[in-house]
Design a protein around this nucleic acid. Structure first.
Lengths: 345, 345
DNA sequence: TTGTAGGCGTTATCAC
DNA sequence: GTGATAACGCCTACAA
């Protein structure tokens, strides 16, 4: 190895060492192209020996295909988004596509500047959560001339494609089921400043279901910033009396605070579900193994990732541009009624 | 907007529209360079109006600086790595560096091919967990001519820099503390096929501590593949008797299975910590709020991310290459003794 | 099957 | 302060 200096081996170096032109090396590296088996073998041997790694940036500049898919998540530090990104990545990489990941921290402003910096890498598509977008964000997205896939929701006026479900409707459904169990004084627990998150839609779904059932929907507990943690739920559970002293059920915007509430109530000797029922959102693994197991709204983040990836692959396939693809993809969601809620008499 | 076709606005387009040369546009876009305030203002106005987004790939080709830092994690779908990546990202982006993320799924083979494909993007540095690497991986890493930072462990013969702690020593320490509490028949719960993960080091630490205390270390329960889940722990807890029927304490390779074991034992009416003590690893949030709270080995994944990022920033700073940087960075780790273990009489 | 010329969009460098 | 020119490393297109 004489590349001990900062110089990286280039295709030209390989070409010279193999006694061919750069183009032959380039072709030898791609399976489809026409090179004689003999030269290919020889070139690849040299490539191996010299530890040559092609510069994909230079290649992309030529082909106009970056091989990137930009992906935004509110927070990487969250099992749900982690699972989604994992399945998205796995499906995409079958086609050689790489993910360019960014986290918005639930901030519209961060989202905007993030998109701007990701766009500089010329991604071939972008997948991002549907929360509120700034006007400039929408403008950037539309001007990028790439497929846009909005996740986790089925918005009324999407920019491009959507993969998700109605957070309002599913929240409505769970609330209705809680009412059917006999709960009346249901409280909804969510974050403050959730206006630009899907938590707001869940809040609305709760409200509507209560109203439609002729029940009051004022028991709204708002605490902390998105995303709500176990700790936040624990705090609220500890101080529940100071919010409302007649609550018979708490529906939480996610399973994390639901688990926290449960722990806090148990510590105070409150019986769950006998005295107070608890329900969450998202079917986190912990909910299945907590004591009691927590009732939750269940869906597979993997579905969101995989379906988005499959969609994107079709969308950016040069051969496939003419076929008309379905714009709206709905993910299956169901209520998992577990031990933390039960039929009242 | 007349860029309705697949053509993306280029610097040349902006230059023409502003009546200057490409170079002037290029300069106007960077704060440091010498352009008259008047021209800069004019150019930036055109940039804004045309929704121009510079192509960073082309720029990188020129500057030989990709702005990428390659980062590997065993699994994105894991709070620990999520938190690490989050803090790494946050610190790096202050310098305009972007992360190129890959997950190895705890597979040395996947790691190898992942590194190969990431290297094509010419990252300026690479941060990856220290588990076992293949020979080819090490070869690739050394030939890439970029700083290598190995995470989560303080290996005996690192490739480059390290940010982490001794998994063996910290496991030894927790085991010793459990022994000091009076536990004697301690079992260690970990995955099968953990040879190439840091779980193996924790296993070794457990063994040594037991041996050093004159206690038997044969109570080794191995189940499932990395990473161990709550569910795995639950299964083991349900069938504990079939593994060993005289266990008085279970030390788990991570908090997830510890929580699962706890749930299973509670369901069987086993008192924790009175009959069996439980300890975990990693200080997951759930451990603090479970009932009882779980004793655990605690460290901040954020430390790993932030310290690595700061190190990398220095390492790739062109002005900074001459200063000699510390090779080994150790993260603080401590035992958090909580309710799931207690002093025996 | 292989090679040559030119260009992808940007920046470094050196003139003016 | 601004512009022309020549890279950067690869691939497309065409020629041999």
């Amino acid at each position: 190895m004489d590349n001990s200096k900062k110089t990286v081996t280039t295709m030209e170096d390989v070409a010279q060492a193999a006694g061919v032109s750069r183009m032959t090396v380039s072709r030898a590296l791609r399976k489809d192209s026409s090179v004689s088996d003999k030269t290919r073998k020889r070139v690849l041997a040299v490539v191996e020996k010299m530890n040559y790694v092609p510069d994909q940036m230079a290649g992309s500049l030529s082909t106009k295909r970056s091989g990137f898919v930009a992906t935004l998540v509110p927070s990487i530090n969250n099992v749900h988004y982690g699972r989604m990104v994992q399945s998205l990545t796995e499906t995409l990489e079958e086609t050689g596509l790489q993910i360019l990941l960014g986290h918005t921290d639930y901030s519209r402003h961060r989202e905007e500047s993030l998109i701007e910096s990701l766009l500089k890498r010329r991604p071939e598509a972008i997948a991002l959560p549907f929360d509120g977008h700034t006007e400039r964000t929408i403008n950037l997205l539309q001007n990028a001339n790439i497929p846009v896939v909005q996740l986790w929701e089925t918005p009324p006026n999407p920019i491009g494609y959507t993969v998700g479900f109605s957070n309002e409707q599913t929240s409505y459904n769970m609330t209705s089921e809680l009412i059917a169990l006999g709960y009346r004084n249901i409280a909804f627990l969510c974050e403050t400043n959730d206006e630009w998150t899907r938590g707001a839609a869940r809040r609305t779904g709760f409200r509507k279901a209560m109203t439609d059932a002729g029940l009051p929907s004022h028991r709204m507990i708002r605490f902390g910033n998105p995303p709500m943690s176990i700790k936040d739920g624990y705090f609220v559970g500890k101080n529940l009396k100071q919010y409302y002293d007649d609550v018979d059920c708490i529906f939480c915007v996610s399973d994390a605070p639901a688990f926290g509430v449960l722990t806090a109530l148990k510590e105070q000797g409150v019986k769950v579900p006998e005295q107070i029922g608890i329900a969450g959102y998202g079917d986190f693994e912990v909910s299945r193994y907590s004591t009691p197991a927590i009732t939750t709204v269940s869906f597979n983040p993997e579905d969101v990732g995989r379906i988005s990836a499959e969609l994107i692959i079709k969308l950016i396939d040069p051969e496939n541009t003419d076929t008309r693809l379905q714009k709206k993809h709905v993910i299956e969601v169901k209520n998992l009624m577990r031990e933390s809620t039960k039929q009242r008499h």
